[in-house]
């Protein structure tokens, strides 16, 4: 039943079966619209990384031709890469978005850093505490996060609507059953929901979508010569004064970042991938998961689950 041919329009015909990326897109848009309609003060947790870039594009699609009807919040630990902050500011300005930046200023003034405190406590103060304080400060009742179920074991069981108690904490045993795409948005005063619209996307899906949709991402994802601290297999970015190498450890290396976090705790990988197709080719040939370069996830067995219980994303 073709409707009057419409030869002139750049309109596209879409027929079943839908590609998996289109299915994931449709599902994510549905989630954005549900949350924006059922909660009073939603916010998107914007981490500046590739997953946040995809979330942002999906939110644009969900409300087009209207604007995104909620603000973005970035939790700044003070240790984010300079290039990340530049990207954040220029991209959100270009899209005309309402960006809120939240920092745990007290801890930052105290000189919190992962070498002094250890990664667990440092993350606890600069990320988890700052996130909870920021959400409370603005009174946000729903927060979108870019976490995916394929990232890590404890995330494989995460709901799309993840219920958090008044302290912002996650109890894996008290999660609400989630059937079909009928989400329960009811919460009491002070309680909140973390929402994961990318739950069913994989790392490859994310990159593929960025490529197809030409979504802007932070240049740190692309390989180039960078000055690094080289220690064993690790490449540690030299962004912070307290990250200092022994003689001979500081070298120029052709490398890139596979996921973006705080500079002292995010290792780079040696790579020649300076385009999206090359990044995808590299990814397909990888034999280790993307979070393997995050120091913080390996502190102890099940460490992601512990952080999540405390309120981390």
């Amino acid at each position: 039943m073709a409707s009057a041919a419409l030869a002139e329009a750049p309109a596209q015909t879409q027929t079943a079966p839908l590609s998996h990326l289109k299915q994931l897109e449709a599902e994510s848009i549905h989630i954005f619209r549900e949350v924006a309609s059922e909660f009073e003060k939603p916010v998107m947790l914007y981490s500046i990384g590739k997953d946040s870039s995809v979330m942002l594009r999906l939110a644009q699609k969900a409300f087009y031709p209207g604007p995104i009807p909620f603000p973005l919040m970035h939790v700044d630990t003070g240790f984010k890469f300079r290039e990340m902050l530049e990207f954040r500011d220029s991209y959100t300005r270009e899209l005309g978005l309402d960006l809120r930046v939240w920092r745990n200023e007290a801890a930052i003034a105290d000189g919190a850093n992962p070498i002094k405190l250890g990664t667990q406590r440092c993350c606890g103060l600069l990320k988890t505490q700052a996130l909870l304080d920021g959400l409370r400060h603005y009174g946000f009742d729903a927060a979108f996060g870019g976490a995916r179920r394929d990232e890590e074991k404890s995330r494989a069981k995460e709901r799309i609507y993840s219920f958090r108690d008044r302290a912002g904490q996650w109890d894996p045993k008290a999660q609400r059953p989630e059937l079909w795409n009928v989400y329960n948005s009811r919460i009491g005063p002070g309680e909140s929901i973390r929402v994961f619209p990318l739950s069913n996307w994989t790392e490859l899906d994310i990159w593929h979508y960025i490529h197809l949709e030409k979504i802007p991402i932070v240049p740190l994802y692309f390989a180039k010569e960078r000055k690094m601290l080289v220690r064993g297999d690790s490449l540690i970015p030299l962004e912070q004064p307290f990250v200092k190498g022994l003689p001979g450890e500081e070298q120029m290396v052709r490398c890139r970042l596979r996921s973006l976090g705080c500079s002292p705790c995010t290792g780079a990988i040696r790579s020649d991938a300076d385009t999206l197709p090359k990044i995808i080719a590299e990814l397909v040939s990888f034999r280790s998961s993307e979070r393997a370069n995050r120091v913080i996830d390996h502190d102890q067995d099940g460490s992601m689950e512990i952080k999540k219980r405390e309120g981390y994303f």
Binding site: A9, S37, K61
Partner: peptide
């Protein structure tokens, strides 16, 4: 209507926005 341009057909399970010829009072 979609962000990627208007469609000449759409099927389940795509997410879309529909405009109508008449002004009907429709809500969530």
């Amino acid at each position: 209507v979609t962000f990627d341009g208007n469609l000449d057909s759409a099927s389940a399970p795509v997410s879309i926005t529909i405009t109508l010829n008449d002004e009907l009072d429709i809500s969530r």
